[in-house]
Simulated assay, not measured.
Amino acid sequence: MPQDTPASRTSVTVIGLGAMGQALAGAFLNAGHPTTVWNRSAGKGDDLVARGAVRAASAAEAVRASDLVVVCVVDYDASRAILEPLAADLAGRTLVNLTSDTPERAREAAAWAAKAGVDYLDGAVMVPTTVVGTPDALLFHSGPRAVYERHEDTLRALGGQSTYVGEDHGHAALYDLSLLDYFWTSMAGLVHAYALATADGVPAAAIAPFLKANAGLVLSLVEETAKGVDSGSYPGDQGNLAMEAAGIEHIAHAAEHRGLDTSVLRAVHALAARGVALGHGADSWTATVEAARKPGA
């Protein structure tokens, strides 16, 4: 049986050596993959080179070094500027773009790659740099299933929770943005809750345990809410939207009385009020999805 050695593992090129790019290249090195790196500006990647990575003199040289090329830069404008001049060098290779952007930009990049004869996967890294390469690291990948499966073992060096989410190249970005939509609105609520409590002299730490319990309640509703969104059924027997909108108004009034910014709360109340206006006052909070889909209603 052939021995699995670094020389027998897939060689990989990583383009872009910001904090995330360096974490990705480091994960490939840790897994024993021969790794070539390149960055637009000099002075990055010394630690990777010291660990065995090869620093390419140019982007074209970096691409030619491997059949699997991973790019992770600030946005798709940056990746496009780097990659489009390299179309001939990339032809016949697999390009995995882990740059964060929109589904539309991902699909545009996939169309360009198809014309250039490049196998293309789009992806998203859902964890901080310190988690990349661990069993807990979650990454999304989308594009042709056959291309993903061909490189799945290599890509799993980046995280044990690497997940394929479909043939549509835009889906990795869609999953990414959907999760971040939830994360950042939740973080806004968390910080605002602390602002409200501390405005009356209650330490944030005093309500922290109760917020953890409340977060558990939200988690318990994730699957049920998904079913309601997918089915279009929003039974309000356990709590209706009209009452919940009134409750949000009370919170906003108390926050304004204390001189706090209420722009996020007012936006949430407006969403609920629009749901009521659309005829969902007797339905559950999940019915606000209809208001989200009809912002001009």
Rank of each mutant, 00 (worst) to 15 (best):
Asp4Gly: 03
Thr5Leu: 12
Ser11Cys: 00
Val14Arg: 00
Ala19Arg: 13
Met20Ala: 07
Ala25Leu: 06
Ala25Glu: 11
Ala27Ile: 14
Phe28Cys: 09
Gly32Lys: 06
His33Tyr: 01
Trp38Cys: 08
Asn39Arg: 10
Asn39Phe: 04
Ser41Trp: 05
Ser41Gly: 08
Ala42Gln: 12
Asp46Cys: 04
Arg51Pro: 06
Arg51Glu: 08
Ala56Tyr: 03
Ala60His: 03
Ala62Ser: 05
Ala62Met: 14
Val63Asp: 12
Arg64Phe: 01
Ser66Met: 08
Val71Tyr: 03
Asp77Ser: 08
Ala87Thr: 13
Ala91His: 11
Leu95Pro: 07
Val96Glu: 06
Asn97Trp: 09
Ser100Leu: 09
Thr102Asp: 13
Arg107Glu: 13
Trp112His: 02
Ala113Trp: 08
Asp119Ala: 14
Leu121Met: 07
Ala124Asp: 08
Pro128His: 02
Val131Tyr: 00
Val132Thr: 05
Ala137Ser: 14
Ala157Arg: 07
Gly160Trp: 09
Thr163Gly: 00
Gly166Glu: 09
His169Pro: 14
Ala172Thr: 01
Leu174Phe: 12
Leu174Arg: 05
Tyr175Arg: 04
Leu177Gln: 11
Leu179Asn: 02
Asp181Glu: 08
Ser186His: 10
Leu196Ala: 15
Val202Leu: 03
Pro203Met: 01
Ala213Cys: 04
Val222Ala: 01
Asp230Arg: 04
Pro235Leu: 14
Gly236Glu: 12
Asp237Leu: 03
Asp237Ile: 13
Ala245Tyr: 01
Ile248His: 00
Ile251Val: 15
Ala255Arg: 04
Val264Ile: 14
His269Phe: 10
Arg274Gly: 11
Gly275Val: 09
Gly281Ile: 11
Ser284Glu: 15
Lys294Ile: 02
